[in-house]
Design a protein around this nucleic acid. Structure first.
Length: 271
DNA sequence: AGGGTGACCTGTCGGC
DNA sequence: TGCCGACAGGTCACCC
């Protein structure tokens, strides 16, 4: 569910409200992708200083150490004074002086991991190989094109890999490639500088627009305030196989790349 | 080192 | 109605 826009929408929906809170207790449910790394009781008394984001990770800076939270495929956070009784898919909860933060994650591909600092080996394993932030100043057209030159895989899969630029998942990879008019199967090294720069702009504009729309709610994503996203209503290709292209009317096609579905317009996108 | 594949886990949906 | 396979927003460990 969560790509960069959904993770950032989640962050924005509770960061200010939790900042400064004191952790009163922490509880874990079924195992997530990785162990927390310490006893939940050890979080008691810690203060939440702020909430940052790196790629699709949320970083809760504490007065000692930090929590790395990943929403996986099906995760979402809720933050409120009171929450409904915990269900079978609620696997992590922090009770703080300013509200309860709860992770709901049916598939349990998500994780909550404690690290001493970002230099901690645990944090480095998860964050160390990540590419640049697409909405930040470090994402530059020329460097992006140069990085793509070194990769022979299909451009769609290079975007998903996240080691050049982070945050682009399965929905927004298809959407950005459509916006740039680039076939998803084209080798990354086959992009001209002009087309790479067009893709650079498309990634930025698609992610920024999705952020404005509160992300995409395909099934059950919601922010920590419980709000749905609306970007899926304006998707040009994602989940539109067999439907007419909104730009040219051609039939949207689908294919499998690395066991993931890709959606594209055969007329608007070229090799 | 880059590239390809399987693995993790649960729910839902379409087809027979 | 029931069963079974395919698929779902991610990404890591493991091969070559």
């Amino acid at each position: 569910m969560p790509e960069l826009p959904e993770v950032e929408v989640t962050r924005l929906s509770f960061a200010d409200r939790i900042a400064g809170a004191r952790i009163e207790s922490a509880a874990i449910g079924k195992p997530l992708r990785w162990p927390l790394g310490l006893a939940p009781a050890a979080l008691q008394g810690r203060q939440v200083l702020r909430v940052r984001r790196r790629g699709k990770y949320l970083l809760l800076d504490l007065d000692h150490g930090l929590l790395l939270i990943h929403l996986g495929m099906s995760g979402s956070l809720a933050f409120a004074d009171q929450l409904p009784a915990a269900g079978p898919h609620d696997h992590f909860e922090l009770v703080t002086s300013q509200g309860r933060l709860r992770l709901h994650d049916p598939r349990r591909f998500g994780a909550v991991v404690w690290a001493e600092s970002e230099a901690d080996p645990v944090a480095r394993k998860l964050l160390g190989h990540l590419g640049v932030e697409p909405l930040g100043p470090g994402f530059e057209p020329l460097a992006f094109w140069q990085a793509l030159q070194a990769r022979r895989s299909a451009i769609k899969q290079v975007l998903l890999a996240g080691d050049i630029v982070v945050g682009v998942g399965n929905i927004y990879a298809s959407e950005a490639l459509f916006a740039a008019g680039i076939a998803p199967t084209l080798s990354a090294s086959g992009l001209s500088q002009v087309r790479a720069e067009r893709l650079h702009g498309a990634i930025r504009s698609v992610l920024a627009r999705a952020l404005e729309q509160g992300g995409s709610t395909l099934k059950d994503f919601s922010s920590a305030e419980g709000k749905s996203g609306y970007f899926q209503l304006e998707a040009m290709v994602y989940d539109r196989a067999g439907l007419p292209c909104r730009a040219c009317g051609a039939t949207i096609q689908t294919l499998r790349q690395g066991q993931r579905s890709t959606f594209f317009c055969p007329d608007c996108q070229t090799s």
